[in-house]
């Protein structure tokens, strides 16, 4: 489900990730809600998968709705590399 170069927006709440999915789908953005990989060990265990091409649109839409994820990670060479984190998170 996760291939080289895919980005994952990982959320810290099931309600937030479901709302985010709904908003991004309404905008016809190509995303897929998937279980967060075990390696990422998140509480709600869900992430939104997307490609780099739509990163800006997706982050902008989430920011507008105050639904930014906890962090965004990119899958590269078999590893997840965090490329963005919510600076407001404590």
């Amino acid at each position: 489900m996760i291939e080289e170069g895919h980005l994952l927006a990982v959320f810290n709440s099931a309600h937030r990730v479901m709302k985010a999915e709904s908003i991004l789908k309404a905008l016809n953005l190509p995303i897929l809600l998937i279980p967060a990989p075990r390696k990422l060990l998140t509480d709600c265990g869900l992430a939104i998968r997307f490609s780099e091409d739509f990163r800006d649109c997706i982050m902008q839409a989430l920011a507008t709705e105050s639904l930014l994820p906890e962090f965004v990670t990119r899958y590269e060479n078999g590893k997840f590399i965090t490329i963005w984190t919510d600076s407001s998170a404590t």
Partner: peptide, 13 residues
């Protein structure tokens, strides 16, 4: 719906 989707994706692992 979310749980079913999650379950099927998880089957892959």
């Amino acid at each position: 719906r979310l749980l079913m989707k999650n379950f099927i994706h998880t089957l892959l692992e």
